[in-house]
């Protein structure tokens, strides 16, 4: 395996851009098992708690480094920029904060990459950018990625992480759900493979569109996946919900997820599936 540990060891600068600060012995406390581990140990383990397996949320660029063959990722559509179509109060400031926190210009990163030499088109949603919410730009970038993949006969691997449609662009955000679903359909009609990887959190309008449309739907363990928010459901039904409600495991049990794949097995799982679909599109 193209060793990820080696990658992490190699360049501190690259890592810092990706959001992980490997100050060598500084400790972090796992929110799940409460154990203390060094940041380095957690980072080495692809931001998964070495003690209990808790998967930390990670930024899109960090995922690129953890998953794809070195230097294989070529970004696409980075030139598509957000406007504020409704002049929504506070939107410009929220965008600014999103940029500062995530280092990205929008809520999704698109491009082409290789996983153990298997080429694919990829989109990775950025949970640190306005909670990966989908406005016009997120929708347009993902739609173009499916068109690009269709043209170039590439499979699409998509990592979802989103609070849903972005309120600040109103109805235009909602319409992205239909738009992207349409491009997913076209890519699929022409025999294109689409694998979705649900990560924490995948909710609202993203769940109700392209997240649930993969030919194969994988999920990271314990990811929250749902349509309506847990709190909204509790308020509506006045009922206490089970602990595992809307977890990846809950969805698996109810038949909406194919496989739960821990982060450190994701690379080999994706490689295997891509290869078994004939490596369609060896033209990367």
């Amino acid at each position: 395996m193209n060793n990820i540990v080696g990658l992490f060891r190699k360049s501190r600068n690259v890592l810092e851009k990706g959001g992980i600060t490997p100050v060598v012995e500084e400790k972090m406390r796992c929110p799940s098992c409460k154990s203390y581990e060094t940041k380095r140990a957690v980072a080495k383990n692809k931001m998964v708690c070495p003690n209990c397996g808790h998967h930390y949320r990670i930024g899109a660029r960090t995922r690129v480094k953890a998953l794809f063959d070195r230097d294989s990722f070529q970004e696409l559509f980075a030139n598509i920029a957000t406007v504020d179509p409704l002049e929504f109060p506070g939107y410009a400031e929220k965008m600014e904060r999103g940029r500062a926190v995530s280092g990205e210009t929008e809520g999704v990163l698109c491009g082409t990459a290789a996983i153990r030499r298997q080429p694919c088109a990829v989109f990775i949603m950025e949970p640190q950018f306005m909670m990966g919410s989908m406005g016009s730009v997120v929708g347009e970038k993902i739609a173009r990625l499916f068109e690009y993949a269709e043209e170039n006969q590439l499979p699409v691997v998509g990592f979802t992480a989103s609070g849903g449609a972005r309120m600040q662009e109103g109805i235009l955000s909602l319409m992205q759900m239909a738009k992207v679903s349409g491009t997913v359909g076209k890519h699929g009609e022409n025999g294109g493979l689409y694998i979705t990887v649900l990560t924490d959190p995948t909710t609202g309008g993203v769940t109700a569109s392209f997240a649930m449309l993969g030919d194969i739907i994988l999920s990271e363990p314990k990811a929250t996946i749902g349509f309506a928010g847990r709190r909204v459901v509790e308020q509506t039904t006045k009922k206490k919900l089970p602990e595992d409600f809307q977890s990846a495991e809950f969805l698996l049990q109810h038949g909406f997820v194919d496989v739960i794949v821990p982060r450190n097995e994701m690379r080999q799982t994706l490689e295997r599936l891509l290869r078994q679909h004939g490596g369609k599109g060896a033209m990367l």
Partner: peptide
């Protein structure tokens, strides 16, 4: 919005309609 709606895949049902 309800437990049963989520169990039976509210998101998946809408997604499927959009695509189909």
């Amino acid at each position: 919005c309800g437990e049963d709606a989520e169990e039976r895949g509210q998101g998946q049902a809408i997604a499927d309609n959009l695509m189909q």
